[in-house]
Structure formats: C-alpha cells, structure tokens
Design a protein around this nucleic acid. Structure first.
Lengths: 204, 204
DNA sequence: GGAAACTCTGAATGATGCTTCACTTCTTCC
DNA sequence: GGAAGAAGTGAAGCATCATTCAGAGTTTCC
C-alpha cells in the first residue's frame, strides 16, 4: 500500500464535489438547463470539463443531483411550515406565502425547478418533486376538511391546482421583474389559494 | 416563360404543406417535441427529410407553425365559450370544462402545448399562448366582479392560477390514463376553479 | 528521493440530428 | 416530343456537445 487518501485529501475531494454542485446550480439558475453545458459548468467551477467525470458518471447524473438538492430544500421548508403550528387553513396560507416568497427571491432557480426545459432525467425528478409538493398540500387540505374548516373536495386535485397555480403565477413575473409588487402579489396569491381550497374569506 | 404553376399544382403543394403540418402535429402529440426529428416527421408524412425544407426554412419554423395552429384552435374554442351566452360564472364553468375535456381527449397534444420540453422558439410561442389564455379568463373574472357575482380580486392572478391549475391537473393523469374517472375529474376541476374565482358554492 | 497510485487536464473522439446539394423525377408549355 | 424549370430525394456535410483518454501534475508512504 503505497497510497491511501488521507482524511484531508478526502475532505478536499468532497469539497470539490460540493463546489461543483453549487456552481452547477448557479449556472442552471442563471441560464437554464439547456444552456448549462458541461464546459460551462466546469468553467464556472474552475476545473476542466473532464474533471466533472471524476465526481459524476454523466452530465445527467450531475443534473439530477443539482435538482434533488435544490428541490429537496424547498420540499423540506414547505413541509416544516405545513406541519407546523396553527390550524390547517393558517398553515396553508403560510405555506403558500413561504413557497412563493422563496421562489421570488431566487427566480432563476424556481424557474429551473418548476418549468424550465430539461433533459428527461431531470423531467422525471421534477414529476416526483411535484408529487411531493402535492402530497404536502393535499394533507393540509384533508386536515382542513376533517376540522370542518374546508368544504368537501378532492384534496389531490386542489393540491395539484395550488402547485400549478403558484408555478404559473410565478413564472410570468420572471420576464418582467417588478420588485415593488412582491407584497401585493403574495397577498393576492394567498387569497386566491384560500379561495381555491374553499376557505371562508378573510380567514388569514 | 416555359413553366408556370397551374392552380392544380399550387393546390397540390398547399395540400402537401398541410399534410406535413398535420403529420408533424401527430408526431409531436405522440412522442413529444424532443423526439420529433426532421427525419421522423418527414417519414410520417411519406416524404424525404430534405423535402421538409421546400415548405419551411428550418425545423424551428415548422415547429412554430405546428404549435400556432394547435394552440390557436384551443384559444379560439375557449374564447367562443367564454364570450358566449350565460352569466360570467356559468361561462367560466363551461370554459373550464371545455378546456379540460378537449385536453383529456387529446392528451398528447395537450401535453405538448402546455408542458412538454421544447426548443426555445416553441417556448416563446407557449408563453404567448398562455398569455392569451390568461387574458380570456381574466376578462370573464372581471365581468363576474362587475356583475357582483365574484368577490374583488386580481383577475390576472386568478386567470394565471386557473391556467396553471388545469395544466397541472391534466398533466399528471397523462401518465396513468383512467378513462372512467373523466367525469369525476371534470366535476372536481370545475368546482375547484369556481372556488378559486370565489364563486358561491353550487353555482353551476 | 523515488515509486506507486491518484487527480486533473484539454484536445480528440463519437454520437446525434439539422441542413445542404448534386442529382433525379415530375410538370408546364411550345 | 422536348426544353425549361420546379419539386423531391437522401446521402454527405456540418455543428454541437457529451464523453474519453493519454499524458502531466500531485499526493502518499517507504
């Protein structure tokens, strides 16, 4: 045994991998999946294109990792809010607001996660991601119905609608960024979401 | 002048172009934009790949034409329903149902129009298409508010939400086709849309 | 210092798929 | 029938990238 990675070396490699994922995420948020070539990503991380393959077996694998990390963070945050304190309607309102606020604060990434054209492997991840979002919303809607706060409805459909509606509302402002209107947009969006779920007016 | 196209020849060429667009639409509805290569489209129309360029200057131009035709039909149909007879809430309900029913009857095409990964030129058309959908819905919502049937709200946001919600609800069933549940799905979707716009329950 | 094992590099390779073009086939008109 | 001109063909050309690989540079350990 003439060579064995020292802990420091292992840490260095892991850091390089993390840096690669972080830089790739930034590139994707900036220019979208289709423009994020291996060369562009490698350049932004300050390494050669070939070095990407030291960390990932293919471009698709890197893309999936980028998507999973970013999407996972969002699902975790939303899950925390939706299962936090408060009655179901309050939690739903807060969840919508948190989801939308985070998306508006990092529009490029939100667009990449929600809607940007992507290779099939990422598309499959996106479907799963949306399914998880829907499951979270559907659960709160069900709790709202059980608590008598929301009318009878198919929670899955309402949840799908909420996911799609938020995505659609958020995607368009991507083109014309109006920083000022964020507050009004969030208020309208939340009100719309509560109506969509059938919550009585002026509940939040 | 030794050659001039006869009317019959002109008709034949136009028919060939129409056939090409129709076949391309079918291919796109079947396999999606990314799999619809020039060769595949030409094959399905029974012509050589090179002949496509007799009718369109590029693949992107053909794709845009395919999108515009199909999307235009949908916008026209929805526009007719939304501006037809009945009070605004009734029209909205009927519009949602027509939109959704047509999408469910041709899921492949609906997916291609609403969500499937596509080249940038088609993506730009899609944005415009969604804007037109939103404008139609927003107008009905505004009429509903003016008639005192709907509560005060930002019609554009509700319209965006309706577009996104329908798309999201429809895209998922694409994977698991359950023909039987169409009626229930439409009923739930319409109910959700009316709640979303703030229409009183049991209004349709 | 030096051998062994590993990481990194970046130009070459290879695959995919749009587009072109020299050629063939068809249509028009005298 | 035949010349002129257009449409149709499909294989070659070309561009774009992901991926590979032979060699250079590093790290480890005796």
């Amino acid at each position: 045994m003439a060579y064995r990675k020292t802990p420091a070396e292992i840490r260095r490699l892991e850091a390089a991998r993390e840096r690669l994922v972080a830089c790739a995420t930034a590139v994707v948020a900036d220019v979208g999946w289709s423009q994020a070539s291996v060369t562009a990503v490698a350049d932004s991380a300050g390494i050669a294109a070939g070095s990407v393959y030291q960390h990932f077996p293919s471009k698709a694998a890197l893309a999936v990792e980028v998507f999973r990390r970013a999407a996972g963070r969002e699902v975790d945050v939303l899950g925390d809010v939706l299962s936090g304190p408060g009655d179901p309607v309050e939690r739903l309102a807060r969840g919508i607001e948190v989801f939308a606020r985070r998306a508006l604060e990092n529009r490029g990434l939100a667009y990449a996660l929600l809607a940007a054209p992507a290779e099939p492997a990422v598309g499959a991840e996106r479907l799963d991601f949306r399914r998880r979002y829907r499951a979270l919303f559907a659960e709160v809607v069900r709790e709202g119905m059980a608590a008598g706060l929301l009318p009878a409805q198919d929670g899955e459909i309402t949840a799908a609608a909420l996911t799609g509606a938020i995505g659609e509302v958020l995607v368009d402002p991507l083109g014309a960024p109006e920083e000022d209107a964020t507050g009004a947009l969030l208020a309208e969006l939340t009100a719309m979401a509560l109506r969509c779920a059938g919550a009585p007016a002026a509940s939040a």
